[in-house]
Design a protein around this nucleic acid. Sequence first.
DNA 1: CTTGAATTTGACTAAATGGTCAACTATACT
DNA 2: AGTATAGTTGACCATTTAGTCAAATTCAAG
Lengths: 206, 206
Amino acid sequence: MGRVSDARERLIDAANELTGKLGYSAVTVDAICEHAGVKKGSFYHYFESKAALSKAAIEEWWETNSRPILDTAFSVSNPPLERLRLYFDGLYQRMVDRKLRGERVIGCLVFSVAMEGSGVDREVEEAIQRVLKRKRHYFEVAIRDAAEAGQVHVPDVEAAVQAAYSLFEGATARARIQNDPEPIVGMYEQVLRLLGAEQPAERKRA
Amino acid sequence: MGRVSDARERLIDAANELTGKLGYSAVTVDAICEHAGVKKGSFYHYFESKAALSKAAIEEWWETNSRPILDTAFSVSNPPLERLRLYFDGLYQRMVDRKLRGERVIGCLVFSVAMEGSGVDREVEEAIQRVLKRKRHYFEVAIRDAAEAGQVHVPDVEAAVQAAYSLFEGATARARIQNDPEPIVGMYEQVLRLLGAEQPAERKRA
DNA sequence: CTTGAATTTGACTAAATGGTCAACTATACT
DNA sequence: AGTATAGTTGACCATTTAGTCAAATTCAAG
Protein backbone atom coordinates (compact mmCIF):
# COMPACT_ATOMS: atom_id res chain seq x y z
CA MET A 1 0.00 0.00 0.00
CA GLY A 2 0.92 3.63 -0.05
CA ARG A 3 2.37 5.29 -3.07
CA VAL A 4 5.28 4.05 -5.18
CA SER A 5 8.42 5.89 -6.21
CA ASP A 6 11.65 5.55 -8.10
CA ALA A 7 13.39 8.14 -5.95
CA ARG A 8 15.67 5.49 -4.51
CA GLU A 9 16.94 4.51 -7.94
CA ARG A 10 17.29 8.13 -8.96
CA LEU A 11 19.43 8.78 -5.91
CA ILE A 12 21.64 5.80 -6.67
CA ASP A 13 22.04 6.85 -10.29
CA ALA A 14 22.87 10.40 -9.29
CA ALA A 15 25.40 9.19 -6.74
CA ASN A 16 27.18 7.04 -9.30
CA GLU A 17 27.19 9.74 -11.92
CA LEU A 18 28.58 12.38 -9.59
CA THR A 19 31.05 10.04 -7.91
CA GLY A 20 32.35 9.04 -11.32
CA LYS A 21 33.05 12.65 -12.16
CA LEU A 22 34.21 14.04 -8.83
CA GLY A 23 35.31 11.13 -6.69
CA TYR A 24 33.77 9.96 -3.46
CA SER A 25 34.77 12.64 -0.96
CA ALA A 26 33.96 15.54 -3.22
CA VAL A 27 30.34 14.49 -3.70
CA THR A 28 27.85 15.94 -1.21
CA VAL A 29 24.44 14.72 -0.19
CA ASP A 30 22.96 18.00 -1.35
CA ALA A 31 24.48 17.60 -4.79
CA ILE A 32 23.15 14.06 -5.09
CA CYS A 33 19.68 15.20 -4.07
CA GLU A 34 19.65 18.09 -6.47
CA HIS A 35 20.87 15.91 -9.33
CA ALA A 36 18.22 13.31 -8.54
CA GLY A 37 15.45 15.86 -8.09
CA VAL A 38 14.83 14.61 -4.58
CA LYS A 39 14.57 16.61 -1.37
CA LYS A 40 16.94 15.85 1.45
CA GLY A 41 14.18 14.62 3.70
CA SER A 42 13.45 11.92 1.15
CA PHE A 43 17.10 11.00 0.93
CA TYR A 44 17.12 10.05 4.58
CA HIS A 45 13.85 8.22 4.14
CA TYR A 46 15.66 5.82 1.82
CA PHE A 47 19.18 5.80 3.23
CA GLU A 48 20.34 6.22 6.76
CA SER A 49 23.56 7.96 5.77
CA LYS A 50 25.70 9.05 2.88
CA ALA A 51 27.83 5.95 3.39
CA ALA A 52 24.78 3.70 3.18
CA LEU A 53 23.80 5.28 -0.12
CA SER A 54 27.31 4.89 -1.46
CA LYS A 55 27.44 1.26 -0.51
CA ALA A 56 24.10 0.61 -2.18
CA ALA A 57 25.21 2.59 -5.21
CA ILE A 58 28.35 0.54 -5.61
CA GLU A 59 26.48 -2.71 -5.32
CA GLU A 60 23.88 -1.51 -7.76
CA TRP A 61 26.59 -0.41 -10.18
CA TRP A 62 28.20 -3.81 -9.97
CA GLU A 63 25.01 -5.76 -10.52
CA THR A 64 23.50 -3.68 -13.32
CA ASN A 65 26.57 -2.27 -15.04
CA SER A 66 29.83 -3.98 -14.50
CA ARG A 67 28.72 -7.55 -13.96
CA PRO A 68 26.51 -7.89 -17.05
CA ILE A 69 29.29 -6.49 -19.22
CA LEU A 70 31.81 -8.88 -17.72
CA ASP A 71 29.44 -11.83 -18.00
CA THR A 72 28.88 -11.13 -21.66
CA ALA A 73 32.51 -10.67 -22.64
CA PHE A 74 33.90 -13.38 -20.39
CA SER A 75 31.25 -15.93 -21.28
CA VAL A 76 32.77 -19.42 -21.37
CA SER A 77 31.21 -19.68 -24.80
CA ASN A 78 33.99 -17.46 -26.05
CA PRO A 79 37.55 -18.67 -26.54
CA PRO A 80 39.62 -17.66 -23.47
CA LEU A 81 41.78 -14.97 -25.02
CA GLU A 82 38.89 -13.74 -27.13
CA ARG A 83 37.12 -12.92 -23.86
CA LEU A 84 39.82 -10.42 -23.02
CA ARG A 85 39.69 -8.91 -26.46
CA LEU A 86 35.91 -8.51 -26.28
CA TYR A 87 36.11 -6.92 -22.86
CA PHE A 88 38.81 -4.45 -23.86
CA ASP A 89 37.01 -3.58 -27.07
CA GLY A 90 33.77 -2.93 -25.21
CA LEU A 91 35.52 -0.78 -22.65
CA TYR A 92 37.19 1.24 -25.34
CA GLN A 93 33.94 1.68 -27.23
CA ARG A 94 32.12 2.90 -24.14
CA MET A 95 34.88 5.38 -23.42
CA VAL A 96 34.78 6.71 -26.95
CA ASP A 97 31.01 7.03 -26.76
CA ARG A 98 31.25 9.05 -23.57
CA LYS A 99 33.88 11.30 -25.05
CA LEU A 100 31.83 11.90 -28.19
CA ARG A 101 28.84 12.68 -26.03
CA GLY A 102 30.96 15.35 -24.35
CA GLU A 103 31.01 13.51 -21.03
CA ARG A 104 34.06 12.70 -18.94
CA VAL A 105 35.90 9.41 -19.46
CA ILE A 106 35.31 7.65 -16.15
CA GLY A 107 37.37 4.48 -16.15
CA CYS A 108 36.25 2.07 -13.45
CA LEU A 109 34.06 3.68 -10.80
CA VAL A 110 35.06 1.43 -7.92
CA PHE A 111 38.74 1.47 -8.74
CA SER A 112 38.73 5.26 -8.61
CA VAL A 113 36.89 5.34 -5.33
CA ALA A 114 39.17 2.66 -3.94
CA MET A 115 42.12 4.91 -4.72
CA GLU A 116 40.81 7.51 -2.29
CA GLY A 117 41.84 5.09 0.42
CA SER A 118 41.06 5.82 4.03
CA GLY A 119 39.01 8.79 2.90
CA VAL A 120 35.97 6.54 2.40
CA ASP A 121 33.89 4.95 5.14
CA ARG A 122 34.64 1.39 6.14
CA GLU A 123 31.41 -0.15 4.87
CA VAL A 124 31.93 1.45 1.48
CA GLU A 125 35.54 0.34 1.40
CA GLU A 126 34.51 -3.25 2.06
CA ALA A 127 31.93 -3.22 -0.70
CA ILE A 128 34.60 -1.91 -3.04
CA GLN A 129 37.15 -4.55 -2.16
CA ARG A 130 34.57 -7.25 -2.75
CA VAL A 131 33.66 -5.92 -6.19
CA LEU A 132 37.28 -5.50 -7.19
CA LYS A 133 38.10 -9.07 -6.22
CA ARG A 134 35.18 -10.37 -8.25
CA LYS A 135 36.27 -8.37 -11.25
CA ARG A 136 39.82 -9.66 -11.10
CA HIS A 137 38.46 -13.16 -10.91
CA TYR A 138 37.16 -12.92 -14.48
CA PHE A 139 40.70 -12.26 -15.63
CA GLU A 140 42.05 -15.17 -13.64
CA VAL A 141 39.57 -17.66 -15.04
CA ALA A 142 40.04 -16.54 -18.63
CA ILE A 143 43.81 -16.63 -18.47
CA ARG A 144 43.87 -19.97 -16.66
CA ASP A 145 41.55 -21.35 -19.33
CA ALA A 146 43.87 -20.04 -22.00
CA ALA A 147 46.81 -21.62 -20.22
CA GLU A 148 45.06 -24.99 -20.10
CA ALA A 149 44.34 -24.67 -23.79
CA GLY A 150 48.07 -24.27 -24.32
CA GLN A 151 47.76 -20.69 -25.53
CA VAL A 152 49.80 -19.15 -22.74
CA HIS A 153 53.56 -19.60 -22.58
CA VAL A 154 54.96 -18.17 -19.39
CA PRO A 155 56.96 -19.65 -16.51
CA ASP A 156 54.40 -18.45 -13.94
CA VAL A 157 50.75 -18.18 -14.92
CA GLU A 158 49.62 -16.61 -11.67
CA ALA A 159 52.22 -13.85 -11.98
CA ALA A 160 51.09 -13.24 -15.56
CA VAL A 161 47.47 -12.97 -14.41
CA GLN A 162 48.41 -10.35 -11.87
CA ALA A 163 50.43 -8.42 -14.41
CA ALA A 164 47.68 -8.54 -17.02
CA TYR A 165 45.21 -7.27 -14.48
CA SER A 166 47.58 -4.51 -13.34
CA LEU A 167 48.14 -3.49 -16.94
CA PHE A 168 44.42 -3.35 -17.52
CA GLU A 169 43.66 -1.31 -14.41
CA GLY A 170 46.61 0.96 -15.05
CA ALA A 171 45.54 1.72 -18.59
CA THR A 172 41.96 2.29 -17.49
CA ALA A 173 43.09 4.61 -14.71
CA ARG A 174 45.28 6.53 -17.12
CA ALA A 175 42.38 6.90 -19.52
CA ARG A 176 40.38 8.45 -16.72
CA ILE A 177 43.18 10.77 -15.71
CA GLN A 178 43.82 11.92 -19.25
CA ASN A 179 40.12 11.95 -20.05
CA ASP A 180 40.99 10.04 -23.19
CA PRO A 181 40.57 6.37 -24.20
CA GLU A 182 43.97 6.30 -25.89
CA PRO A 183 45.81 4.19 -23.27
CA ILE A 184 43.33 1.38 -24.01
CA VAL A 185 44.17 0.98 -27.70
CA GLY A 186 46.51 -1.88 -28.39
CA MET A 187 46.16 -3.14 -24.84
CA TYR A 188 45.02 -6.54 -26.06
CA GLU A 189 48.16 -7.10 -28.11
CA GLN A 190 50.29 -6.06 -25.16
CA VAL A 191 48.48 -8.46 -22.86
CA LEU A 192 49.02 -11.23 -25.40
CA ARG A 193 52.76 -10.61 -25.29
CA LEU A 194 52.63 -10.58 -21.52
CA LEU A 195 51.00 -13.99 -21.67
CA GLY A 196 53.38 -15.32 -24.26
CA ALA A 197 50.42 -15.88 -26.57
CA GLU A 198 50.55 -15.87 -30.34
CA GLN A 199 49.93 -12.49 -31.91
CA PRO A 200 46.87 -12.71 -34.17
CA ALA A 201 47.92 -10.80 -37.30
CA GLU A 202 51.60 -11.63 -37.18
CA ARG A 203 53.68 -13.93 -39.29
CA LYS A 204 54.28 -17.28 -37.61
CA ARG A 205 57.87 -17.80 -36.55
CA ALA A 206 60.14 -19.28 -39.21
CA MET B 1 64.77 40.57 8.50
CA GLY B 2 62.03 39.58 10.93
CA ARG B 3 61.90 36.11 12.34
CA VAL B 4 62.37 32.86 10.47
CA SER B 5 60.15 29.80 10.43
CA ASP B 6 59.73 26.39 8.95
CA ALA B 7 55.94 26.53 9.22
CA ARG B 8 55.63 26.60 5.46
CA GLU B 9 57.53 23.36 5.09
CA ARG B 10 55.61 21.80 7.94
CA LEU B 11 52.35 22.67 6.24
CA ILE B 12 53.52 21.17 2.97
CA ASP B 13 54.68 18.01 4.68
CA ALA B 14 51.44 17.67 6.58
CA ALA B 15 49.44 18.21 3.40
CA ASN B 16 51.32 15.48 1.58
CA GLU B 17 51.08 13.06 4.44
CA LEU B 18 47.35 13.53 4.90
CA THR B 19 46.62 13.63 1.19
CA GLY B 20 48.49 10.37 0.76
CA LYS B 21 46.31 8.71 3.35
CA LEU B 22 42.95 10.30 2.67
CA GLY B 23 42.99 11.67 -0.84
CA TYR B 24 42.71 15.29 -1.86
CA SER B 25 39.09 16.15 -1.21
CA ALA B 26 38.94 14.48 2.18
CA VAL B 27 41.76 16.59 3.59
CA THR B 28 40.73 19.81 5.31
CA VAL B 29 42.69 22.95 6.03
CA ASP B 30 42.03 22.50 9.74
CA ALA B 31 43.46 18.99 9.67
CA ILE B 32 46.56 20.15 7.84
CA CYS B 33 47.07 22.95 10.34
CA GLU B 34 46.64 20.71 13.33
CA HIS B 35 48.99 18.09 11.89
CA ALA B 36 51.59 20.75 11.19
CA GLY B 37 51.17 22.46 14.56
CA VAL B 38 50.31 25.73 12.83
CA LYS B 39 47.38 28.01 13.47
CA LYS B 40 45.01 28.75 10.65
CA GLY B 41 45.97 32.40 10.58
CA SER B 42 49.51 31.33 9.76
CA PHE B 43 48.30 28.99 7.05
CA TYR B 44 46.84 31.91 5.14
CA HIS B 45 49.96 33.92 5.78
CA TYR B 46 51.85 31.39 3.63
CA PHE B 47 49.20 30.25 1.18
CA GLU B 48 46.31 32.13 -0.29
CA SER B 49 44.08 29.05 -0.47
CA LYS B 50 43.92 25.33 0.06
CA ALA B 51 44.46 24.86 -3.67
CA ALA B 52 47.61 27.00 -3.57
CA LEU B 53 49.02 24.88 -0.76
CA SER B 54 48.17 21.70 -2.64
CA LYS B 55 49.87 22.92 -5.77
CA ALA B 56 52.98 23.85 -3.81
CA ALA B 57 52.86 20.53 -1.97
CA ILE B 58 52.75 18.56 -5.19
CA GLU B 59 55.63 20.49 -6.68
CA GLU B 60 57.61 20.09 -3.49
CA TRP B 61 56.85 16.37 -3.45
CA TRP B 62 58.06 16.05 -7.00
CA GLU B 63 61.29 17.96 -6.47
CA THR B 64 62.34 16.48 -3.14
CA ASN B 65 60.84 13.01 -3.26
CA SER B 66 59.91 11.63 -6.61
CA ARG B 67 62.46 13.30 -8.83
CA PRO B 68 65.58 12.42 -6.83
CA ILE B 69 64.48 8.80 -6.67
CA LEU B 70 63.83 8.72 -10.39
CA ASP B 71 67.10 10.47 -11.19
CA THR B 72 69.03 7.94 -9.18
CA ALA B 73 67.40 4.83 -10.58
CA PHE B 74 67.12 6.09 -14.14
CA SER B 75 70.63 7.49 -14.29
CA VAL B 76 72.10 7.01 -17.76
CA SER B 77 75.07 5.46 -15.96
CA ASN B 78 72.91 2.39 -15.46
CA PRO B 79 72.10 -0.05 -18.26
CA PRO B 80 68.63 0.79 -19.64
CA LEU B 81 66.68 -2.18 -18.34
CA GLU B 82 68.60 -2.13 -15.09
CA ARG B 83 67.13 1.32 -14.52
CA LEU B 84 63.65 -0.13 -14.43
CA ARG B 85 64.72 -2.89 -12.09
CA LEU B 86 66.34 -0.42 -9.71
CA TYR B 87 63.27 1.78 -9.70
CA PHE B 88 60.87 -1.08 -9.07
CA ASP B 89 63.08 -2.51 -6.35
CA GLY B 90 63.30 0.85 -4.61
CA LEU B 91 59.55 1.35 -4.83
CA TYR B 92 58.94 -2.07 -3.37
CA GLN B 93 61.42 -1.50 -0.59
CA ARG B 94 59.84 1.79 0.38
CA MET B 95 56.41 0.21 0.45
CA VAL B 96 57.63 -2.62 2.65
CA ASP B 97 59.28 -0.13 4.98
CA ARG B 98 56.06 1.81 5.35
CA LYS B 99 54.10 -1.32 6.01
CA LEU B 100 56.57 -2.50 8.65
CA ARG B 101 56.40 0.91 10.25
CA GLY B 102 52.63 0.43 10.50
CA GLU B 103 51.88 3.20 8.00
CA ARG B 104 49.63 2.97 4.98
CA VAL B 105 51.05 1.91 1.62
CA ILE B 106 50.61 5.06 -0.42
CA GLY B 107 51.52 4.27 -4.01
CA CYS B 108 52.11 7.39 -6.06
CA LEU B 109 50.72 10.54 -4.44
CA VAL B 110 49.99 12.43 -7.61
CA PHE B 111 48.51 9.46 -9.43
CA SER B 112 46.03 8.97 -6.60
CA VAL B 113 45.10 12.62 -6.54
CA ALA B 114 44.81 12.64 -10.31
CA MET B 115 42.26 9.84 -10.05
CA GLU B 116 39.92 12.09 -8.12
CA GLY B 117 39.37 13.85 -11.39
CA SER B 118 37.27 16.99 -11.56
CA GLY B 119 37.10 16.96 -7.78
CA VAL B 120 40.39 18.87 -7.58
CA ASP B 121 40.94 22.51 -8.46
CA ARG B 122 42.24 23.34 -11.90
CA GLU B 123 45.63 24.67 -10.84
CA VAL B 124 46.26 21.52 -8.81
CA GLU B 125 45.13 19.35 -11.70
CA GLU B 126 47.57 21.08 -14.04
CA ALA B 127 50.49 20.62 -11.64
CA ILE B 128 49.58 16.94 -11.43
CA GLN B 129 49.43 16.42 -15.16
CA ARG B 130 52.83 18.03 -15.54
CA VAL B 131 54.41 15.79 -12.92
CA LEU B 132 52.83 12.67 -14.36
CA LYS B 133 54.11 13.46 -17.82
CA ARG B 134 57.62 13.96 -16.50
CA LYS B 135 57.50 10.69 -14.66
CA ARG B 136 56.37 8.75 -17.71
CA HIS B 137 59.21 10.32 -19.62
CA TYR B 138 61.77 8.42 -17.54
CA PHE B 139 60.17 5.18 -18.70
CA GLU B 140 60.17 6.29 -22.30
CA VAL B 141 63.84 7.19 -22.34
CA ALA B 142 64.92 4.01 -20.60
CA ILE B 143 62.94 1.74 -22.88
CA ARG B 144 64.00 3.61 -26.01
CA ASP B 145 67.61 3.29 -24.89
CA ALA B 146 67.08 -0.42 -24.35
CA ALA B 147 65.55 -0.70 -27.81
CA GLU B 148 68.52 1.05 -29.38
CA ALA B 149 70.81 -1.35 -27.54
CA GLY B 150 68.90 -4.18 -29.18
CA GLN B 151 67.48 -5.47 -25.93
CA VAL B 152 63.85 -4.90 -26.82
CA HIS B 153 62.09 -7.08 -29.36
CA VAL B 154 58.63 -5.80 -30.09
CA PRO B 155 56.89 -4.66 -33.27
CA ASP B 156 55.98 -1.28 -31.73
CA VAL B 157 58.30 0.25 -29.14
CA GLU B 158 56.01 3.19 -28.37
CA ALA B 159 53.10 0.86 -27.65
CA ALA B 160 55.32 -1.22 -25.40
CA VAL B 161 56.39 1.90 -23.50
CA GLN B 162 52.78 2.81 -22.88
CA ALA B 163 51.95 -0.70 -21.74
CA ALA B 164 54.94 -0.89 -19.42
CA TYR B 165 53.97 2.39 -17.88
CA SER B 166 50.35 1.31 -17.51
CA LEU B 167 51.44 -1.93 -15.91
CA PHE B 168 53.62 -0.03 -13.50
CA GLU B 169 50.95 2.49 -12.52
CA GLY B 170 48.33 -0.22 -12.27
CA ALA B 171 50.45 -2.34 -9.95
CA THR B 172 51.31 0.68 -7.84
CA ALA B 173 47.67 1.69 -7.61
CA ARG B 174 46.67 -1.83 -6.63
CA ALA B 175 49.33 -1.86 -3.93
CA ARG B 176 47.78 1.29 -2.52
CA ILE B 177 44.28 -0.09 -2.69
CA GLN B 178 45.23 -3.37 -1.05
CA ASN B 179 47.59 -1.62 1.35
CA ASP B 180 50.14 -4.25 0.42
CA PRO B 181 53.25 -4.16 -1.80
CA GLU B 182 52.50 -7.59 -3.25
CA PRO B 183 51.39 -6.43 -6.73
CA ILE B 184 54.89 -4.99 -7.20
CA VAL B 185 56.81 -8.24 -6.79
CA GLY B 186 57.79 -9.79 -10.07
CA MET B 187 56.77 -6.68 -11.96
CA TYR B 188 60.22 -6.34 -13.48
CA GLU B 189 60.12 -9.80 -15.04
CA GLN B 190 56.65 -9.09 -16.41
CA VAL B 191 57.81 -5.83 -17.94
CA LEU B 192 60.73 -7.65 -19.51
CA ARG B 193 58.33 -10.06 -21.21
CA LEU B 194 56.24 -7.12 -22.33
CA LEU B 195 59.33 -5.66 -23.92
CA GLY B 196 60.40 -8.92 -25.47
CA ALA B 197 63.64 -8.70 -23.47
CA GLU B 198 65.70 -11.65 -22.31
CA GLN B 199 64.76 -12.99 -18.91
CA PRO B 200 67.75 -12.76 -16.57
CA ALA B 201 67.67 -16.07 -14.68
CA GLU B 202 66.16 -18.18 -17.41
CA ARG B 203 67.74 -20.81 -19.64
CA LYS B 204 68.53 -19.48 -23.10
CA ARG B 205 66.20 -20.86 -25.75
CA ALA B 206 67.26 -24.16 -27.22
C1' DC C 1 -14.31 6.30 -1.32
C1' DT C 2 -12.11 5.49 2.68
C1' DT C 3 -7.94 4.10 4.83
C1' DG C 4 -3.41 3.76 6.11
C1' DA C 5 1.14 2.98 4.77
C1' DA C 6 4.61 4.86 1.75
C1' DT C 7 6.39 8.98 0.30
C1' DT C 8 7.37 13.95 0.13
C1' DT C 9 8.41 18.36 1.95
C1' DG C 10 10.70 22.27 3.92
C1' DA C 11 12.23 24.19 7.70
C1' DC C 12 15.52 23.15 11.15
C1' DT C 13 20.16 22.04 13.66
C1' DA C 14 24.88 21.42 15.00
C1' DA C 15 29.14 20.86 13.35
C1' DA C 16 32.61 21.52 9.93
C1' DT C 17 34.31 24.04 6.26
C1' DG C 18 37.41 27.64 3.85
C1' DG C 19 38.74 31.98 4.67
C1' DT C 20 39.61 36.93 7.10
C1' DC C 21 41.66 40.17 10.12
C1' DA C 22 43.69 43.27 13.42
C1' DA C 23 46.52 42.86 17.15
C1' DC C 24 50.53 40.74 18.96
C1' DT C 25 55.33 38.82 19.16
C1' DA C 26 59.87 37.57 18.11
C1' DT C 27 64.09 38.51 15.89
C1' DA C 28 67.63 39.66 12.15
C1' DC C 29 69.88 43.59 10.86
C1' DT C 30 71.62 48.18 11.48
C1' DA D 1 69.48 48.82 21.74
C1' DG D 2 65.99 50.09 18.27
C1' DT D 3 63.06 49.02 14.72
C1' DA D 4 61.22 47.36 10.66
C1' DT D 5 59.81 43.09 9.06
C1' DA D 6 58.38 38.46 9.10
C1' DG D 7 55.76 35.39 11.66
C1' DT D 8 51.93 34.15 15.04
C1' DT D 9 47.57 34.14 17.20
C1' DG D 10 42.73 33.50 18.27
C1' DA D 11 38.57 35.32 17.57
C1' DC D 12 35.46 35.82 13.94
C1' DC D 13 32.52 35.08 9.50
C1' DA D 14 29.67 33.15 5.83
C1' DT D 15 28.73 28.99 3.75
C1' DT D 16 28.34 24.28 3.38
C1' DT D 17 27.93 20.03 5.41
C1' DA D 18 25.40 15.68 7.13
C1' DG D 19 21.56 14.70 9.33
C1' DT D 20 16.52 15.41 11.82
C1' DC D 21 11.67 15.77 12.13
C1' DA D 22 6.80 16.51 12.29
C1' DA D 23 3.47 17.63 9.25
C1' DA D 24 1.50 17.20 4.68
C1' DT D 25 0.55 14.50 0.54
C1' DT D 26 -0.34 10.71 -2.41
C1' DC D 27 -2.24 6.59 -3.94
C1' DA D 28 -2.82 1.13 -3.86
C1' DA D 29 -5.93 -1.76 -1.98
C1' DG D 30 -10.03 -3.16 0.63
